[in-house]
Computed example of a mutant assay.
Amino acid sequence: MTIYTVHVPPARDRRAGRDAFRAVFVKEGFCWPGLVVAFPWLVFRRMWIVLAFYIIAGAGIIALSRQEELILVAMAVGAFVPLLLGFEGNDLRRWQLGLRGYEMMAVVEAASRAEAEIRYFSGRPEPVAKEPPPVPLLRPQPIAPSRGVVGFFPASGGAS
């Protein structure tokens, strides 16, 4: 079973009933797209800060590879960066969602993302209407004192 974290948009961006469609499910574990196709994956997920560091690391690798004595270092760093994105890609995605204001709402254990969505949405309560139903205005009726009844007794003199 895989663990998924559920992130919802910030409260200021939520619309009644629409926030469920914008929930993001992030898998816990190794990120294969981060290892294999890192650049397109970062662009697709709109992880701009991580993409900037990825480009800087790529430029550093190219600069290192131009010097013959540092070519082995460049190869090691070139192998390390995709592995780092593979191992930490989903955590970086959670971090990026947190920067955008997304809140982690739940942790779901499921075999697939579809099953995680089913488990998450089946356990959620129905949305509550924002406005409570109007309460009818009750006009207080003045209580007129009765001359014949004293206290809790229904008849005068205490006899019932």
Rank of each mutant, 00 (worst) to 15 (best):
S146L: 10
R147Q: 14
M75W: 15
D13Y: 10
L72W: 15
D19S: 13
S122E: 12
R15L: 11
G98F: 06
L138S: 10
D19Y: 07
R22F: 09
A110Y: 02
A129T: 05
G17K: 04
F80P: 00
Y4H: 05
F44D: 08
N90M: 09
N90S: 06
S112C: 04
A16P: 12
E68Y: 07
A63Y: 07
L35R: 01
R147Y: 14
T2Q: 11
P33T: 03
W48C: 03
H7D: 06
S112E: 04
S65K: 05
V37Q: 06
Y120H: 10
E109H: 07
F152P: 06
F153M: 14
G78H: 07
W41I: 01
M105S: 14
K27F: 00
M104W: 00
A110V: 03
F39R: 05
R15G: 12
L51M: 11
P145T: 08
V81Y: 02
A114T: 07
G158P: 05
G123Q: 10
R94S: 11
F53L: 12
W95A: 08
G60I: 01
L85Q: 08
V135Y: 07
I61L: 05
A11R: 12
F21Y: 10
G78M: 07
A59L: 15
R66G: 11
P136L: 10
F153A: 13
A59I: 12
F153Y: 14
L97F: 04
P140M: 09
E69K: 13
Y4S: 03
F153K: 14
Y102Q: 02
F152D: 14
F44R: 12
F80S: 10
V150N: 10
P140C: 00
Y4V: 01
R22P: 00
F21M: 06
F30T: 03
F25H: 04
K130Y: 08
I56T: 12
P33R: 03
R124D: 00
S122W: 02
A74G: 09
L64R: 07
E69D: 15
P142V: 02
Q67S: 11
L137F: 10
M75Y: 15
Y4Q: 03
R46M: 05
R147E: 15
V26T: 04
W41F: 08
V135N: 03
F121C: 00
V77L: 15
G89K: 01
P136R: 12
R18H: 04
A116L: 04
L138Y: 11
E109T: 06
P127F: 06
P134A: 11
T5A: 10
M105E: 13
A11Y: 06
R12S: 15
L99C: 10
A79I: 05
M105P: 00
P142Y: 01
P140W: 06
M105D: 13
T5F: 09
P9Y: 05
G29C: 08
Q96G: 04
I62A: 15
